[in-house]
Design a binder for these strands. Structure first.
Lengths: 337, 337
DNA sequence: GCCGGTGATGTTAGCGATAACACCAGGTCG
DNA sequence: CGACCTGGTGTTATCGCTAACATCACCGGC
């Protein structure tokens, strides 16, 4: 008839093991000065009671939590979603819980609010996935002293940042097309205010210029298959277009459809390269040559940078870049004739 | 020259406002018995100091956190990712932080471990996205008394559960094909151990049987475009196949490619319907008719069910189902001749 | 005009951990 | 051989909050 007894606390373990609660604490925190025999006795008691330390109490006294806050946009775009997933896994493996604050739009106000919610929770550090300039601006509101890492953010800012090397990936993709024999390469870009898109434009332009080819105007779209389709409708009408580098795979998908509708065969008439290597890219018509970013590596670097800041307060190398890899498939061929 | 002063605590606010810390606590928790004038003075002091309550201290004394733990697979499958995103937003709006525990594989051991990590954190409630039987099995390990909601889980289990009405969506999709005049409808299914896949098979079969048509054998695949392609290669060779319902859009994508390679035009020769309405489905070749689940609604129901359990300890209606909607596009037409 | 009720506030006692220090036995060293 | 270190342990204070109870002024009713 006893009431639901509360969870066991450290003193309960101590009593069972015949030691003081402080000794239990020492065992839990791997302090060196505990006799082996005592340690074993305490561990047995812990197991017997199914004791689990109260994180709130620990956080209260140490002033630190084992929580990392992430601010991300509420979208299912492949890149950000993959990144988030990879980061959650990496952080979990390192013993940190990840609290995700979703934001509907990437404006300064929303992001600042999300950051504040995390600070309310006393997170040990914050990661902001800030792929647009409006998002990056919000970081100015974060007080110094909060460990903070930006992912996919503004390369021009001094804050710790991890990104995929967009320019390098775009350079490789474009060069791959040029090496197939195309006179030049057109580019369908993501939204101009996204750093990822800007980096890819830059890498594309560098490759075209390096080959001494003419630089066609950038066709700006958003990330959707829909806008890729519209861009494709235009480009399909231009016979001089024989090679297109799309800023992501979904743009490429839309473009493929437009080409197909206009009777321009890929890769026979037009070659196409995407970016992201979404899982289904190998099953587009035709299978899409694309660039694969290593999201797991980005996640590892991000976590590393954050943990450095958490423990040391500072960071040695606050800017890290992860190189992507070209994945050749069937959407690239030499130009016609 | 003063050292980095610690964050302001309740007593600091109290001192500034000229009241006791308990009055500050009352203001914070909206207790009725506080004079309006006092309330204002305290609020001003809170603002001036940029005071934020220490959640660890509160959690320590109340024994409750404002944290919800979610267990999800480490995948970027569109359905689960959308669900997670929607849930994070809904929970955030309700003032709860969401801690995500990712799991590499959906086996009993991994899921139990993830649940334990959440219990260590003393989460107020747990949501498990458990779309396979192996995942559902793990729920047996969760002790009673922990508020728990399963999403996409086993309809046969008594635990609180929210799911999309897979069978209804599949029934509608299949009926849509039959009404276009097809003699029967073939089905490419997701993995057999996924409840979503099983539900869609069931709805499909019911629709075919209801029409008095012959029920073809189920073609079982996984969720990937790759396996849809393989299924399509087989089905494309069979002239009697004029209508296919695919268990998700990516399967349909692969199947479309196989059909195209074999010269079977969609929708002229073969009609196809998918499931999920991924954003790019409108830009497949041809735009794909599909079924759209309402993930936001699933998230709302899940949160509601969980909050009920957290506050009341029990739940009135522990099983909720959200109806999906058919989205007609261009991949369905009457059969040839 | 005294009494009990009520609204506004203050005081005190924990919640469950860690930190800092106290203590004690036993070994080392000048 | 007494002073001193050192490894193992216990004791006490403390983190910032809420719950429970104490206090006090003021009200209306008999």
């Amino acid at each position: 008839m006893e009431k639901t007894s509360r969870d066991p606390a450290m003193t309960d373990v101590a009593r069972l093991a015949g030691v003081s609660h402080q000794t239990v604490s020492r065992v839990l925190n791997n302090h060196p000065n505990v006799r082996e025999q005592t340690r074993l006795r305490v561990q047995a008691a812990i197991k017997e009671l199914d004791y689990r330390p109260n994180r709130a109490a620990r956080a209260l006294v140490t002033g630190k939590t084992q929580l990392i806050g992430v601010v991300a946009q509420n979208s299912t775009l492949y890149g950000p979603a993959s990144l988030l997933s990879a980061f959650e896994e990496a952080a979990g493996a390192a013993g940190f819980a990840v609290s995700v604050g979703r934001v509907k739009v990437l404006d300064r106000e929303s992001i600042s609010a999300a950051v504040e919610r995390h600070r309310d929770q006393r997170v040990a550090g914050i990661v902001v996935i800030a792929p647009t300039s409006s998002a990056a601006d919000a970081l100015a509101d974060v007080p110094a002293g909060v460990p903070l890492v930006t992912v996919d953010g503004d390369p021009g800012r001094p804050t710790p940042l991890v990104t995929v090397d967009q320019a390098a990936g775009a350079f490789d993709a474009t060069t791959h097309l040029l090496e197939a024999g195309h006179r030049t390469v057109w580019h369908v870009s993501g939204p101009a205010d996204w750093f990822d898109a800007a980096g890819r434009v830059q890498g594309w332009r560098r490759a075209v210029e390096a080959a001494g080819a003419e630089v066609p105007p950038v066709v700006t779209a958003d990330w959707s298959a829909s806008s890729g389709y519209r861009a494709g409708q235009m480009l399909a009408r231009m016979p001089e277009v024989t090679a297109v580098f799309c800023s992501n795979d979904h743009l490429a998908l839309g473009l493929l459809r437009a080409m197909s509708e206009r009777g321009r065969r890929v890769p026979h008439d037009v070659s196409v390269v995407g970016f992201d290597d979404v899982p289904e890219a190998a099953y587009f018509i035709p299978p899409l040559t694309t660039v694969r970013p290593d999201f797991a590596a980005v996640a590892r670097e991000t976590l590393g940078l954050l943990l450095e800041q958490i423990s040391d307060g500072e960071t040695t190398r606050p800017r890290r870049t992860v190189a992507p890899a070209l994945v050749p498939r069937d959407s690239v061929a030499p130009p016609p004739e």
